[in-house]
């Protein structure tokens, strides 16, 4: 399973993402946007856009990365998505997928962004752990337990769209993870850390192969990534199950 981890200046979660894929058994490769040429992506089984601050996020987070991808290899990306192969973006990567119009993708790829990851309600960057409830089994989540914990680390993570789009996302069952409070009730701040509408933390496109998630599964891959590992022993970090789901799915698809 060959995974292209895309990079540009300011991407900075690539190393832990690389380790997560590698540990799961996949073959990740860093692919810098400056070295990316037409026809290159096709040979990969998956595209992964890691977190960070691409180009500094001085304008809308992810907008510059998306613009450069569009300018360079837009057709390849469309083909990749339409072939059904998985594309995943974490944090800044999620923001890029929205800016590209690949997400929410309620009716396929959109020309302009249909949603936004806005500035947090707290109006500042926050690094903290959150509880998530799985609301859909997808190739990115099927092996994950129903409740997991992952860290968030962002200033712009409030999922926002018009009521129509939100309704479509919900009707299509595109929400994969939602923020919940520790007692599984509706989360208030900080359990919904950014004010996301309907507590949306992760969505998939309507075809189920493009996945964006604000929290960081790669930073919760090992048990000792969890902040409470000295009190709650675990076999695996909760993020592991997302990479494992993907790995199983791709291998099954290949062996079919």
């Amino acid at each position: 399973m060959r995974v292209a981890i895309l990079q540009m200046e300011g991407t900075n979660c690539e190393e832990e993402s690389y380790i997560a894929f590698k540990e799961t058994g996949a073959n990740p490769e860093y692919l810098h946007i400056n070295n990316l040429t037409e026809g290159m992506l096709e040979s990969y089984d998956m595209i992964f856009i890691p977190g960070g601050f691409s180009a500094g996020d001085y304008i809308r987070a992810g907008a510059v990365f998306a613009a450069r991808l569009k300018a360079k290899v837009w057709k390849d990306i469309v083909d990749f998505v339409e072939s059904g192969k998985p594309v995943m973006g974490v944090c800044n990567g999620f923001q890029v997928l929205i800016e590209l119009g690949l997400l929410p993708g309620t009716d396929g790829i959109s020309e302009v962004p249909q949603a936004a990851l806005m500035t947090n309600n707290s109006n500042r960057f926050e690094c903290r752990w959150v509880h998530l409830k799985k609301t859909k089994d997808t190739m990115f989540s099927r092996d994950a337990p129903n409740k997991i914990m992952l860290p968030v680390a962002h200033a712009e993570g409030k999922f926002f769209a018009t009521q129509d789009i939100i309704k479509k996302i919900e009707d299509n069952g595109q929400v994969v993870f939602r923020y919940i409070s520790p007692d599984a009730t509706e989360p208030e701040y900080p359990w919904n850390p950014n004010g996301s509408i309907n507590d949306i933390a992760a969505i998939v496109n309507s075809y189920g192969n493009v996945f964006g998630i604000m929290p960081h599964p790669e930073r919760a891959y090992f048990p000792f990534h969890h902040p409470d590992w000295t009190r709650n022993p675990r076999d695996k970090g909760d993020g592991y199950y997302i990479f494992k789901s993907l790995f199983n799915q791709i291998n099954e698809a290949k062996s079919r």
Binding site: N12, C13, E15, E16, F125, C127, R219, F222, H225
Partner: peptide, 13 residues
């Protein structure tokens, strides 16, 4: 919490 204290995935405490 305004500082990312776990990017790179090395911060175990």
């Amino acid at each position: 919490r305004q500082y990312d204290h776990e990017v790179q995935g090395r911060t175990v405490i």
